[in-house]
Simulated assay, not measured.
Amino acid sequence: MEVEQLDAVLVPLGLLVLAVYHIWLVITIKRNPRHTVIGLNAETHHQWVFSLMTDPLKNGTLAVQTLLNNMMASTLLATTSITLSSIIGVFVSKTSSVVHTSSILVYGNTSPLVSSVKYFTLILCFLVAFLCNVQSLRYYTHVNFMVTLPTSQGKVQAMEYAVGSLNKASLFWSIGLRAFYVSFVLFLWVFGPIPMFVCSCIMCIVLYFLDTTDSLTRKLHHKSLKMR
C-alpha cells in the first residue's frame, strides 16, 4: 500500500470503529439503561424533579442553583468550541504555507485538498459541539422556569414534561462533550492517518469505561433512590 492510500483506508476504518461503538451505546441505553451512565442520570433526573416539584416554593432556590451550575458548564463548552473553530479557521486561511512546510511530519497524504478536509472536519466538529451546548442551555433555561412554578405543584404531567426537558438538556450536553472527544481524534488526523486510527481505538476503550456502570455503582444508585 502506498503512503497516500493510508488516509483512504485507516481514516474510514477509525470513524467506523467510533460509529459502531456509539451504535452499541444507543442500543444499550434503549435496552439496559441502568448499565449506562446516561440511563442512570435520566433516572436520577426523574427522581430529582419529582422531589423538588412537590414543593416548588420551598425547593426553588436549590433547583435554580443546581441548574445554574449546569448552565455555566454548557456556556463554558459553547464558548470554548466556537473560539477553537474560529482560531482554526483563521489559522487555515492565513497560514497555509505553514501547513505545507509541516507536511514532512505527516506520514500519509499531504495534498492541499486532504489538508483542507482535515481542518474542515475539525471545525465542523467544534461547530456541532457549539450548537449542542447552545441547545442544552435552551432546555436548562426552560426547566429553570418549570421547576419553580407554584401552579405545577403536584401535577404529574407538568413534572413529566420538566423531566423530559431536563433529560434533553443533559443529552445535548453529552453530545456536545462527545464532540470534543471526537475532535481530539480528528486533530491527530492532522499528523497522519495512523495516529488517528490508533486514537480512535483507544478513545472507544476510554469511552466504554466512562459510559458504562458496574454492579456496585448500580447497587449504590438503587439504594440512594430508595432512601429518598
Rank of each mutant, 00 (worst) to 15 (best):
E2D: 15
Q5A: 15
V11T: 11
V11N: 02
P12N: 12
P12L: 08
V17K: 03
Y21A: 10
L25Q: 09
V26W: 07
N32W: 11
P33V: 08
T36M: 12
G39F: 01
G39L: 00
L40I: 06
L40Y: 01
A42F: 09
T44C: 09
W48M: 07
W48N: 04
V49W: 03
F50Q: 04
L52I: 14
L52R: 13
M53Q: 06
P56K: 06
N59V: 08
G60E: 11
G60R: 11
T61R: 09
T61C: 00
L62D: 13
L62C: 07
A63V: 04
A63I: 09
V64E: 13
Q65Y: 00
Q65V: 09
Q65I: 09
L67S: 06
N69V: 14
N69E: 14
M71H: 07
M72K: 04
L76T: 12
L77H: 02
A78D: 03
T79F: 13
T80H: 01
T80D: 07
T80W: 00
S85R: 08
S86L: 15
I88P: 07
F91L: 15
V92E: 14
T95Q: 15
V99A: 15
I104L: 12
L105Y: 00
V106I: 15
G108Y: 02
G108R: 01
N109P: 07
N109Y: 08
L113S: 14
V114H: 07
V114L: 11
S115T: 14
S115M: 14
V117C: 10
V117W: 10
K118C: 14
C125T: 13
V134Y: 00
S136F: 00
Y139R: 03
T141G: 15
F145V: 07
F145W: 09
T148V: 14
T151H: 05
Q153K: 15
Q153W: 00
E160R: 11
Y161L: 15
V163S: 10
V163P: 02
V163N: 01
N167P: 05
A169I: 02
S170K: 04
S170Q: 05
F172G: 02
W173K: 11
S174K: 11
R178M: 13
S183F: 06
S183P: 06
V185P: 02
W189G: 05
V190G: 04
F191G: 10
G192Q: 03
P195Q: 09
F197T: 02
F197E: 00
C201P: 01
I202R: 00
Y208N: 06
T212W: 00
S215Q: 08
S215C: 10
L216I: 02
T217H: 04
K219T: 10
M227Y: 09
